[in-house]
Design a binder for these strands. Structure first.
Lengths: 350, 350
DNA sequence: ATTGCGATTTATAACGATATAATTACGGTC
DNA sequence: GACCGTAATTATATCGTTATAAATCGCAAT
């Protein structure tokens, strides 16, 4: 086909388009583009997919026309035909009400998904059903191309299930399974270790740490880092009993308040979350104990919140937005092709 | 479980999948149910839809078989055929970093959507594109059956667009347009009014309020409530200049701190958000001003955060989770059939 | 027996995309 | 000019569902 022919074809297409404009306000489909270009639907499809068998010239022309009329492929049709959903599911545990936890993750994820065809679907996991249910459901019914979840456990059933079925996923936190799996984690060991060292260096003689529920892997990491530090320093310590970072904040405060009134009370607290840190501060306040003198505190900071808290508290930062972003990117890499797992792991430093 | 065990399990899963191609383990479709019941696909479809033309006995039998084999309709196919997406889009502004704002909304929304066929998709609205873009995109390309958005403006373009096109939506906050539209709002007028009255009753003589950016309707409501109260009481007042609730929290603190060092400083602050309230508290602390004596504060509380803040701060509660829940329910009602708009409006009391 | 009718069920055709197989066009070779 | 191979395009079938139209059945009325 000569250049002139192509130009002619283009002109024809253009005028037809003007005619069609008035006729159909309807949503443009491949058929629309096909009619405008005078090509077959199949050709248009392949042209837009940049298939090498389609002449470069044609590809460009199709691309142009598609852009002109604002053609966007129908997700449902693509999904039905290809089996790909273009959906990433974020399984959220409503217990994670730790202020901006979910928000930060979501912001990071959407940023990672930006410019891709992927949509982010929030799948709640209601407390009256087993943790694994939403994951199984998404996988079995192909509701998404990839799953993101959090609060990973040492022998996490979700990880097992997804690995067995070779289903793309990424989780925040990691298991203790022998098999490697994709994850993004924060170095909670170092967090607790360094927090303890800081407290001790500041003069604390008996440390206390409030841990997450024991079923989560990061509870073990925190505990391990904590124990290593206190043993190295030979300092007194205790682990908060009866409350966890998941407890209602009032319960945490009640516990800490009570403990502060007892003999041999701890004088250094490590808090893995912002709310629990505030609860410790409130307890100290209610006991008229002065922070930084009677009681010391190192908290994990995941938002800008503690910049406004007085008296100033020593914090160590965990970037959850970045974690979300990383998870998104790694998951996309995994979905694109089966990337080697060692490339799908990331440990954020303290 | 050992590495080899996992690998073996993986292999098994893989081969099962291959064998299952046409077997009973394949994802069940209408066709599967049709074959099992000896009925036509059409009949099964209608039976599951509880069409009255299908014999009751048949309906029950189909329902039973479908349940037995765990049949679930394919969303993509349904969407393609019916045009309904079974998706609700929540358009999120990443600027809404007001701690748990988004999380609360999402929790409420998922609770409202629970048990329905609707999925919640998070659509971010990036600051480098016009606010209306994601909404227009969702509407034009039928990416969702309904839209939820927040931070409504007096002449909100999104509301106009969606109303004009009769597209189901609900927003948090309301416009000042002549046309009624669905919304869920909080009574910010009363909030500011009552907050001011509380401060005055407690002895404050010059009030200050930090407002949201002026383009949002609720900024006007807050201002109006505030102004009404201070005029009624004939007390001094000012409106924070140069900072809004959307400002970086450090900037808010810097502003308040500076203002507190100047003559004729306000002695009563009204904060529409938790972070700004903390910034005021931090400023007071940094000036060694005592809260409740030198400076008073009434804050809007949307989480349990302030239960842990000391000294205790007077707050007025806004339930964002409930707002999300309400929005979900009202939107579903609107989607189900065109409910009269007056039934789709809710004003949460202070 | 034939017709008609309501009650059920079924066949067919789409929705919009893509994978696969088939077709056309074109230049070069003998 | 017939033949071939490559490049480019097109036809057909299909994903799983539902809307529409058509068909079947049993039974009563004629």
């Amino acid at each position: 086909m000569s250049l002139d022919d192509l130009k002619e074809k283009g002109r024809r297409a253009k005028s037809e388009r003007l005619v069609a404009r008035s006729g159909a306000d309807a949503k443009p489909t491949l058929k629309t583009v096909a009619e405008l270009t005078g090509l077959a639907v199949t050709t248009v499809s392949r042209a837009l997919a940049d298939a090498p068998q389609i002449a470069l010239e044609t590809r460009q022309r199709v691309r142009q026309v598609a852009a002109d009329i604002g053609y966007l492929p129908d997700r449902a049709a693509q999904r039905l035909r290809t089996g790909r959903t273009n959906v990433i599911s974020l399984v959220l545990d409503p217990h994670e009400e730790i202020l901006g936890y979910a928000t930060s993750m979501i912001n990071g994820l959407t940023e990672a998904l930006r410019g891709t065809a992927y949509h982010l679907v929030i799948t709640p996991h209601f407390s009256d059903t087993p943790q694994i249910e939403p994951v199984r459901h998404i996988m079995r019914n192909r509701m998404a191309d990839g799953i993101v979840f959090t609060r990973t456990e040492p022998g996490d059933e979700r990880v097992k299930l997804l690995m067995e079925n070779n289903f793309p996923f990424i989780c925040h936190g990691r298991t203790e399974l022998a098999t490697a799996h994709p994850y993004v984690d924060y170095d909670n060991y170092s967090f607790a270790y360094q927090a303890a060292k800081k407290l001790i260096a500041a003069g604390a003689s008996k440390l206390s740490i409030i841990l997450p529920p024991e079923r989560f892997t990061f509870a073990h990491h925190l505990k391990h880092g904590f124990m290593t530090a206190v043993r190295e320093e030979g300092v007194g310590f205790e682990i908060a009993k009866g409350v966890t970072l998941d407890s209602k904040s009032d319960d945490i405060r009640d516990y800490v308040f009570r403990r502060m009134g007892e003999p041999e009370r701890p004088d250094g607290y490590i808090c893995g979350g912002e709310v629990s840190a505030l609860a410790v501060m409130a307890s100290a306040y209610d006991h008229s104990l002065e922070l930084g003198r009677d009681i010391r505190l190192v908290a994990k900071q995941t938002s800008g919140l503690f910049d406004q808290i007085r008296p100033r508290v020593e914090t160590i930062y965990e970037d959850l937005t970045e974690a979300g972003f990383l998870m998104g990117k790694l998951l996309l890499k995994r979905i694109g092709g089966p990337a080697p797992i060692h490339e799908l792991q990331a440990l954020q430093t303290v």
